[in-house]
């Protein structure tokens, strides 16, 4: 039962990463692309956690935490650049 659920969840997360990649390519404006990249890193955190469950080890937890922190900081930096024309004033 756990194998079927794990493969289904991996397939759904991979499909959502592909959909966000589609939006990041065709996105008509810059905030669309930033939102697509934001959603993509959140989905990649889910993929890494699922891979850690699949190989039965939690050494990938730090990678997921680093991706979460750096993705948030990059999103905030690009949004500040769009808002003010400068990141650190």
């Amino acid at each position: 039962m756990l194998d079927v659920a794990l493969w289904t969840s991996l397939a759904l997360f991979a499909a959502s990463v592909l959909l966000t990649l589609f939006r990041a390519i065709i996105g008509p404006s810059l905030p669309d692309r930033i939102l697509a990249l934001d959603t993509m890193y959140i989905n990649s955190i889910g993929l890494i956690i699922l891979f850690g469950i699949w190989i039965n080890s939690n050494i990938y937890f730090e990678a997921a935490l680093l991706i979460a922190m750096l993705g948030f900081i990059s999103t905030v930096a690009v949004c500040k650049y769009l808002l003010r024309g400068d990141i650190i004033e």
Partner: peptide
């Protein structure tokens, strides 16, 4: 996650 990506698209 899939429904969120569908909404984004």
């Amino acid at each position: 996650a899939f429904i969120g990506a569908l909404g984004l698209t």
